[in-house]
Simulated assay, not measured.
Amino acid sequence: MLDRVITSGTFSLDGGTWDVENNVWLVGDAREVIVIDAAHDARAIADRVGGRTVKAIVCTHAHDDHINAAHELAGLTGAPIRLHPADQVLWEQVYGDAVRYEPLADGEKLEAGGISLEVIHTPGHSPGAVCLHAADLCAVFSGDTLFKGGPGATGRSYSSFETIIESIRDRLLTLPGETVVHTGHGESTSIRSEAPHLEEWIARGH
């Protein structure tokens, strides 16, 4: 139903580069999966996929560390790349206009192996950031919008602290408390664990 590949590489933006480890999530069954955030190492991800069909490679946002293996993985698997078009400017920083993706829309539902993923547009970390809600699994895949301990970073280009707080408050913290939050980096958490800290994050961010 759910698998994780941890890949290592770098994240670069605004002239800086940082070493990072990314969570790549595979959602589906023994026949088919959706890959969430193809980061750094397409071969390692393809090895974990094995003989399964990849229905889509979904990017929660277009920072380079979340998309830099997407094109190669698409070539290995034949799967379409999906991204919210509000992140076009970030996508072009990595791929220019040489690599195409299919646009994601808020409220769209993707399916693999009998599991439905609903796209939730959660701008703030980037303009086109999305989370994927798998009600069947009582889980949400939050990319870099929400982590264990607080919101994703908003100190770089194309990000907004006020917007990410609004996205978390209105789109994520309204999910059932028992919903597990599978993040783009680090450990998973839950809506119940993070919800009480909203006011603290707001105070800390100003």
Rank of each mutant, 00 (worst) to 15 (best):
Arg156Asp: 09
Val94Thr: 13
Glu111Met: 06
Ile120His: 05
Asp19Lys: 15
Thr10Ile: 10
Arg48Gln: 07
Asp47Ser: 12
Asp136Trp: 04
Arg4Ala: 08
Leu146Trp: 02
Leu117Thr: 12
Thr145Ile: 14
Gln93Ser: 04
Gly9Ser: 07
Thr122Gly: 06
Thr163Cys: 11
Val94Glu: 00
Ile202Arg: 08
Trp25Phe: 11
His197Val: 13
Val54Glu: 08
Leu76Gly: 06
Phe11Glu: 00
Glu72Ala: 15
Trp201Lys: 07
His84Asn: 06
Arg82Thr: 01
Glu32Thr: 07
Asp14Gly: 03
Gly186Asn: 13
Glu102Ile: 07
Asp19Glu: 12
Lys148Gly: 05
Ser159Val: 11
His66Thr: 01
Ile164Val: 15
Lys55Val: 12
Leu2Asn: 08
Gly114Tyr: 03
Ala134His: 09
Ala46Asn: 03
His71Gln: 15
His63Tyr: 00
His125Gly: 10
Gly16Ser: 05
Asn23Gly: 01
Ser116Trp: 10
Ala38Asp: 04
Gly184Thr: 00
Arg52Val: 02
Ile34Tyr: 01
Val49Gln: 07
Asp29Gly: 03
Glu108Lys: 14
Ser116Arg: 15
His40Cys: 13
Ile115Cys: 14
Gly50Ala: 08
Thr17Phe: 00
Arg169Ala: 14
Asp136His: 13
His182Asp: 00
Ile81Cys: 10
Thr189Gly: 09
Ala30Thr: 06
Pro196His: 05
Ala98Gln: 07
Thr154Ala: 12
Gly51Leu: 11
Gly184Val: 03
Thr77Gly: 09
Ile168Trp: 04
Val94Ser: 01
His206Ser: 11
Phe161His: 07
Ala56Asp: 08
